[in-house]
């Protein structure tokens, strides 16, 4: 499974981490050696709506630019959805998504994005459907989730 790394906003730091990530990716999988084109997805977080733009991206490295527009603190979790329906398994309280059950499908997450701040998350996404959501208590059920479709690059 492709792992992602949370990257700080600094350009220099980003470049270094990109290099490190590439190396780690290479060493863990012995996979692709040629760099691919990277897409960018803007992720808007606010009470209580989560939107991704564009909602369709080619497979490969995706840079997810998170922006918490508040007022509350949020987080972002990206999981691959098998069937294509957006419903995620919930905990027994019926309010928050069951992250333990989703662990195997979880691509990456960004915890505690404070209101008014930004963050970028680089993830490697295979073609398929993904659910992007905030799982702070009640936020998922209040509407903070959306679907991201990853297509085979043309």
């Amino acid at each position: 499974m492709w792992g992602g790394r949370e990257v700080a906003m600094g350009v220099k730091g980003a470049v270094i981490l990109v290099a490190v990530s590439v190396m780690l990716a290479g060493s863990s999988c012995g996979g692709p050696s040629a760099p691919r084109r990277e897409s960018t997805v803007k992720v808007s977080l606010r009470d209580f709506r989560l939107t991704v733009t564009p909602a369709r991206v080619p497979a490969g490295w995706v840079s997810m630019d998170l922006s918490n527009e508040g007022p509350d603190t949020h987080e972002m979790i990206i999981v691959r959805t098998a069937a294509g329906d957006g419903r995620l398994p919930l905990r027994l309280d019926g309010i928050t998504a069951d992250e333990d059950a989703l662990a195997a499908r979880k691509v990456d997450s960004a915890d505690t994005v404070l209101p008014g701040t930004r963050r970028t998350l680089r993830v490697h996404l295979e073609p398929g459907r993904y659910e992007v959501f905030c799982n702070m208590a009640g936020h998922y059920r209040a509407g903070m989730h959306t679907e991201l479709v990853v297509v085979v690059p043309s």
Binding site: R46, D47, F48, R49, D93, G94, I95, A137, G138, H139, R141, A142, G143
Partner: peptide, 19 residues
């Protein structure tokens, strides 16, 4: 700004309390 809350009033209430 809540939207698409659960239709079940009790769940809805619990979601709002949690929020």
């Amino acid at each position: 700004g809540e939207h698409s809350l659960p239709a079940d009033p009790e769940t809805r209430l619990r979601v709002l309390a949690t929020l």
